[in-house]
Simulated assay, not measured.
Amino acid sequence: MIKKFSAEFVGTMVLVLFGCGAAVLGGFDIVGQLGIALAFGLAIVAMAYGIGPVSGCHVNPAVSLAAFVAGRMSLKDMGLYWVAQILGAIAGAAILGLIAKTGFAALGANGYDAGSPGGYGLHAALIFEVVATAIFVIVILGVTGEKGQGAFAGLAIGLTLAVIHIVGIQVTGVSVNPARSFGPALLQGGEALSQVWVFFAAPAVGAVIGALLFRFKVLEPEA
């Protein structure tokens, strides 16, 4: 379990550092929305193949919740993964804050209303995060199942996350991952921290919806 904890810690740290780092250090004026989206997606691809054999590369409490609901993970393991993911996200945000010229004032936190890059409100944030997380976990559970495309799983998952970011960055900055949201929000504080509940609640609902489709064999392939 130490190996799994370490893998999830490192994987989530890398996701936050590279993904949020592209937004903070690159930004819309340098790498653009597409560049930020690809940074998140490619970080997942890299970690999927780097730590996937150790922990499965969840690096996301919503993914671990989905695995639990779908019957692919124990409650104990889910709790361990959650702790590693949250701590990893905080570490990634802390490293980014030490590098960025703005320090901890802007770490790529998610938000709505004034915290939304495109000025979208709470209802849009909730709808997007629920739907996007459900789609994300459906892809993950599908490609990592017994009849999934194991060798291409990391690529499929990373590309899905990139597409989600291309569509949703203007809405919330894209979470679909409570750890990714909490790390930057905790260190950034203020409005980002007051809004972070949305990025726990909505991804959790989306994860359960997606997982139940596998739990009740709706999307499980025929034997």
Rank of each mutant, 00 (worst) to 15 (best):
M1V: 12
M1R: 15
K4L: 08
F5P: 03
A7S: 09
E8L: 10
E8K: 08
F9S: 11
T12H: 01
L15W: 00
L17V: 03
F18P: 07
C20G: 07
A22V: 04
A22D: 00
V24M: 02
V24P: 08
L25I: 13
F28P: 07
I30L: 14
V31S: 12
L34S: 10
I36E: 06
I36T: 05
A37I: 01
A39P: 07
F40G: 00
F40T: 00
G41P: 13
G41Y: 00
L42R: 00
A43C: 14
V45L: 11
V45D: 04
M47A: 00
G52K: 06
P53G: 10
H58C: 04
V63A: 11
A67D: 08
A70Q: 06
R72V: 10
L75R: 14
L75C: 08
K76S: 15
G79P: 13
L80T: 13
W82P: 06
A84E: 01
A84H: 00
Q85E: 14
I86K: 05
A89D: 08
I90P: 06
I90Y: 08
A93V: 09
L96S: 11
G97Y: 09
I99K: 06
T102D: 15
L107W: 03
L107F: 12
L107M: 12
A109F: 00
N110L: 01
A114R: 12
P117Y: 10
P117M: 06
F128M: 07
F128H: 01
I138S: 12
I140T: 14
K147C: 01
K147M: 09
G148R: 12
G150S: 15
A151C: 09
F152C: 13
F152A: 15
A153G: 11
G154K: 02
A156N: 10
A156Q: 09
A156E: 02
I157G: 02
V167Q: 05
G168P: 00
G168W: 01
G168H: 01
I169M: 13
V171F: 09
T172M: 08
G173T: 08
V174G: 10
V174K: 02
S175E: 02
S175W: 04
S175G: 03
S175V: 05
S175T: 04
V176G: 07
V176H: 03
V176F: 03
R180H: 14
S181G: 11
F182T: 08
F182D: 03
G189V: 13
G189E: 12
G190S: 15
E191M: 13
A192H: 04
A192E: 12
S194V: 05
S194Y: 14
Q195M: 05
F200V: 15
F200I: 09
A201N: 05
A202C: 05
P203E: 03
P203I: 10
P203G: 03
V205T: 05
A207H: 06
A207W: 03
A207G: 07
V208L: 10
G210S: 06
L213C: 14
L213T: 13
F216P: 04
V218H: 15
L219M: 10
P221N: 08
E222P: 04
